[in-house]
Write a protein that binds this DNA or RNA. Structure first.
Length: 403
RNA sequence: GGGGAUGUGGCACAGCGGCAACUGCGGCGGACUGUAAAUCCGCUCCUUCGGGUUCCUUGGUUCGAGUCCAAGCAUCCCCA
């Protein structure tokens, strides 16, 4: 293993908080592989780059010789993590959790080293808990302490509801740490309370407490809000290469260095150099963004895919050519009484518009093209001959080819 | 258990009983670009355009209800 100082350099890069740092140092000094914990709440099956941030940090731990325990929260899912929430989470069914967990693991393994990763389910030890044991765990925690949490505090002071069972979530998450004897628990910055709860409980159980390590929440492609599916500012790990590259190209300049640090496979030195270049104004954001796009696509789709995606991107957006792999759709092109086809309906069927009304508005706004030719406003009906095998386009980036 | 307040389109916030409903944000389309930022323009319930269906739910008053009344549901506040 590398010297402790070297390891710490890698580990601290990009982290938000390490509580406490000197305990982490002591653990590293033992020279034995540490057990790094990440709890996964399988609420939504699609991972994005934001989810990958802690995963990347864990991969760095693995590369340094440590091992990772991934906990699938099929037990804690019965509650739903209240962290950062302003309302109670809807509970998930067992089947949803399993299905989500499966896709989660598939995607996570693109980042993690499977050799050094153990996967466990916390339902295995949470579901058998009896009331006595439960109460025992709960007695180690204090309501006032839990109410200090920002999310609960906000909900409480803003008069939003907090269901009683939500208080139990940190308790169970802490119990996970006891069961697997974690050395370090990773999480997003919104997880800090839950991670600290783990420390408290481990100490109460007479164990060496885990170190809490949080990563910043990744800012989404809009550059302001955190990356989240609901804000539609996310880059999905399973996004198609060209799409992924394009989304990277669309991020704001200011957040490029952060993306390099948190999402790329670039070395610490390279990332530091990019930081400096941005700081003194010598950076070329456009070039760096393209390189970042290639790096990220390579990471999730395999070496070489990044360059391919970049070429496809240039064809599409620099030369305004129609991309090669556009979805094929078969639509009902039966003409109506006057021998025309209602284009608005076709656009809906092709998935390019939500409703016929929207399609009509798009046509009126000159946003619809057939084979590259803009459709004139008000021409909602078109000659079927124009449509057979035609390429439909809405806006700059939505295409469909008619069968 | 008692008293009070609130419930409008993804979000926020308007709306004397009489035009699908002000405005902002967001989103989408167009121009300009580096699918960045900034800026400008248009659109943002459904409808082959005739019309249809909306303002928590259900009833009621009315020629006419987002607006008035009643009950219910939900959330919040104060008291116990």
């Amino acid at each position: 293993m590398l010297p402790v100082e070297e390891q710490l350099k890698v580990i601290t890069s990009g982290t938000m908080q390490i509580v406490p740092l000197d305990e982490l140092k002591k653990k590293l000094e033992k020279g034995t592989p540490l057990n790094i914990k990440l709890g996964v709440d399988p609420t939504s099956p699609d991972l994005h780059l934001g989810h990958a941030v802690p995963l990347r940090k864990m991969r760095q731990f693995q590369d340094l010789g440590h091992k990772v325990t991934l906990i699938i929260g099929n037990g804690t899912a019965l509650i739903g993590d209240p962290s950062g929430r302003d309302s109670t989470r809807p509970p998930l069914t067992e089947e949803q959790v399993e299905a989500n967990a499966k896709t989660y693991v598939e995607q996570a393994m693109k980042v993690l080293d499977p050799e050094k990763t153990t996967i466990v389910h916390n339902g295995d030890w949470i579901k058998p808990l009896n009331l006595g044991k439960m109460l025992g765990l709960m007695s180690k925690f204090n309501v006032a302490r839990i109410l200090e949490r920002e999310d609960f505090h906000n909900r409480y002071t803003e008069g939003r509801s907090i269901a009683l069972h939500e208080f139990i979530y940190p308790v169970l998450q802490a119990y996970d740490s006891v069961v697997i004897d974690a050395d370090v628990e990773m999480g997003g910055n919104d997880q800090i309370f839950n991670l600290l709860a783990g420390r408290d409980l481990m100490r109460a159980e007479g164990m060496e407490p885990q170190v809490a390590l949080t990563m910043p929440l990744l800012v989404g492609t809009d550059g302001t809000k955190k990356m989240s599916k609901s804000y539609k500012n996310y880059i999905g790990l399973t996004d198609a290469p060209a799409d992924m590259f394009g989304k990277v190209m669309s991020i704001a300049d200011e957040i490029v260095p952060m993306y390099y640090r948190l999402c790329s496979t670039c070395s610490l030195d390279e990332v530091d150099a990019i930081d400096r270049a941005f700081a003194d104004g010598t950076a070329d954001p456009y070039k760096l963004k393209r390189a970042l796009g290639r790096n990220i696509v390579d990471l999730y789709h395999g070496a070489g895919e990044g360059e391919k995606a970049e070429r496809a991107f240039d064809d599409l957006f620099k030369k305004h050519e129609i991309p090669e792999d556009i979805p094929q759709v078969s639509c009902d092109l039966t003409p109506n009484d006057d021998g025309q086809v209602y284009l608005a309906r076709v656009l809906v069927e092709a998935g390019l518009a939500k409703s016929a009304s929207e399609a009509r508005r798009l046509i009126d706004g000159r946003g619809v093209k057939i084979n590259g030719e803009a459709v004139a406003p008000k021409s909602y009906n078109v000659d079927p001959a124009m449509l057979a095998g035609a390429t439909l386009q809405v806006g700059k980036r939505h295409f469909a080819k008619l069968a």
